[in-house]
Design a protein around this nucleic acid. Structure first.
Length: 569
RNA sequence: UGCCCCAUGGUGUAAUGGUAACACACCGGUUUUUGGUACCGUUUUUCUAGGUUCGAGUCCUGGUGGGGCAACCA
């Protein structure tokens, strides 16, 4: 086989391109727009970014990176009523956290004067007019998707009159809702967006950047394409709901373009995830109504929520890479997101011992008061992670469900007469338990095999026993609160339950707080957001609420659990 | 009842007009001092009817189904 065959093989092994990458490669090859590639990520600062935005960010920044172009961050801040610097700051933080950096930082509000000048130009060309009708009247005249609209009685007034009225709007002499500037296009167009779209409206609300300098604000359809044009964007990538806006995007740009350069809009499918939702409006409602603890509540699909939950930037990028970009409006299984974080944390998270629902295990043949120090590996997937010391003693905490007095056949844990390995320590044989009058188990008893110590090299230490359980020494532990999270909603597809208010579908058990949990003392040095694997339980991180006196952990995701499936049979 | 977009296993995604593949999920097994990981395997796929072609998941036409569009939101 020649080396040429090898290179072809490698080529084939390369991940296939998505349809936007195909377009970009072709445009670059053809030298379109002087062979430049420039994208932008254009959020409106009216909320926190969510995992759906992460998909867009990976596209906008990723494709520029891949093909040697640039990607800018532009805040689409044309509606001061909804926007705030709090959102501007969080958006920048989240993009950086995901691992991306913009070439330039822009604001649509930087273009307010330019946009206004162009609007005046359009008026002078007789292609825009001031309408004095109410919002209701304008909506009525818009027609319906199946019937043509009717023209406004103000549609044909003189250029001079339009100029004077637009100036009056600009000077703050017109009340909100009394006048708008509309493009004069076609009230009978089959595309609703062409029925004389509104370009400017009066808003008397301070803007987070321009203050009270402006009384008129441009609408999305007018501002977005022009902003792209001003900046030199070549590929304006957005989501599918903007497909019907594209002809208008092109129309506005054609009105003003003074060269062959054109930005082009391309649309991909939005991210839909099972058991959650991406509506910024509804997420805001959850926050404002106190149904979650904030935008960064670990149950939220926001970037900040996922970060606090314990998701890593790498896991989110890997997830986005797995789901791909198409024009098909589907629904991604939350299990794929969970797979991505398990895959990452399995390779990187230090293993520690934590008991969430503790019960005492007394080793009756171990000297009372004695302790010894054992060595525990930090990560079996990563030898370089090294070892740590843990304390062993005759009294331990173990999980309540690691003991059963009457156990089913395939139960490999503590049950009278059965042997298990205590992780990193000894093999113990269960001898019984103590119960209260109600039959609740208070303590479990066992005897250990002194020769079975982990790593001691003895024959006994190499004995195979069916089960291994984790434990924390009652002589050396820290108390902790552990927050167990589950899916935010009870149904996979919220849109399929249109008859119900989404708040009725919230999962009442999406957060369960466990207190009095016992964790190994090495966790005293954990820092906020540090990831760990609590052995046999799942991946957890230290919540920012945590203090040295009161440790708080979040469960990012549980370990896959084939026992629960066996058990339920 | 207009315009636009879409249709490949359970869920996503791939396949110069030439053997339908990958990931997740599921089920079964091997290994295991985590009922984890890793590894192996089973089951399951081109919406429909025509047409073009030696050959169609791919091209054409008609159906069917899903989504979007009638904010002074983006």
């Amino acid at each position: 086989m020649t080396s040429g065959d090898n290179s072809v093989k490698q080529e084939e092994a390369k991940k296939s391109l998505n349809f936007i990458e195909v377009i970009v490669e072709n445009d670059l090859k053809e030298g379109k727009n002087d062979g430049r590639l420039q994208t932008r990520f254009p959020p409106e600062p009216n909320g926190y970014l969510h995992i759906g935005h992460a998909k867009a960010i990976c596209m906008d920044f990723g494709i520029a990176q891949k093909y040697g172009g640039i990607c800018n961050l532009r805040f689409d801040d044309t509606n001061p009523v909804k926007e705030d610097v709090e959102y501007v700051d969080s958006i920048m933080e989240d993009i950086r956290w995901l691992g991306f950096e913009w070439a330039n930082l822009y604001y649509a509000s930087d273009y307010f004067q330019q946009l206004w000048d162009l609007a005046v130009r359009l008026i002078k060309q007789g292609k825009a007019y001031v309408d004095e009708q109410s919002a209701e009247e304008i909506a009525r005249q818009k027609g319906t998707p199946t019937t043509a609209g009717t023209e406004s009685p103000y549609r044909n007034r003189s250029v001079d009159e339009n100029l004077a009225l637009f100036q009056a709007m600009t000077d703050g002499k017109v009340e909100e809702g009394k006048m708008v500037l509309r493009a004069k296009i076609d009230m009978a167009s089959p595309n609703m967006h062409f029925r004389d779209p509104i370009m400017y409206r009066v808003i008397n609300h301070p803007h987070h950047r321009t203050g009270t300098a402006w009384k008129v604000y441009p609408m999305y359809d007018y501002a977005h394409g022009q902003s792209d044009y001003f900046e030199g964007v070549t590929h304006s990538i957005c989501t599918l709901e903007f497909v019907v806006h594209r002809p208008l995007y092109d129309w506005f740009i054609d009105q003003f373009a003074d060269s062959d350069y054109r930005p082009r809009q391309y649309e991909f499918n939005r991210l839909n995830l099972t058991y959650t939702m991406m509506s910024k409006r509804k997420l805001l409602q959850l926050v404002q109504e106190g149904l979650v603890r904030g935008w960064d509540d670990p149950r939220m699909p926001t970037i900040s929520g996922l970060r606090r939950r314990g998701y890593t930037p790498r896991s989110i990028r890997s997830f986005v890479d797995k789901i791909g970009y198409t024009k098909y409006d589907g629904m991604i299984d939350m299990a794929l997101l969970e797979h991505a974080i398990r895959e990452d944390l399995n390779a990187t998270a230090p293993r520690v011992s934590a008991v969430l629902d503790p019960i005492k295990l007394i080793i009756t043949n171990y000297d009372a008061g004695k302790t010894e120090t054992l060595l525990a590996e930090n990560n079996p997937e990563d030898e370089s992670a090294g070892n740590r010391e843990v304390t062993f003693s005759g009294e331990l905490f173990i999980e309540r469900d690691d003991f059963m007095e009457d156990a089913p056949k395939k139960y490999f844990r503590l049950t009278p007469g059965n042997e298990v390995r205590l992780k990193h320590a000894y093999i113990v044989k269960c001898t019984g338990c103590k119960k209260d009058e109600a039959g609740n188990v208070l303590e479990v008893y066992a005897e250990y095999d002194p020769l079975s110590k982990s790593g001691s090299g003895t024959e006994e230490s190499k004995r195979k026993v069916k089960g291994t359980i984790h434990w924390v020494s009652a002589a050396d532990y820290l108390d902790a609160e552990v927050r167990l999270y589950d899916r935010l909603f009870t149904v996979p597809d919220l849109d399929a339950e249109k008859d119900k208010d989404f708040r009725e579908l919230l999962n009442p058990e999406s957060l369960i707080v466990r207190t009095g949990c016992k964790v190994e003392s090495s966790l005293a040095s954990a820092k906020a957001l540090d990831n760990f694997q609590f052995q046999r339980l799942g991946y957890f991180n230290l919540d920012p609420d945590s203090t040295p006196d009161k440790l708080v952990f979040n469960r990012t995701v549980s370990l896959k659990d084939s026992w629960s499936k066996v058990k339920d049979k």
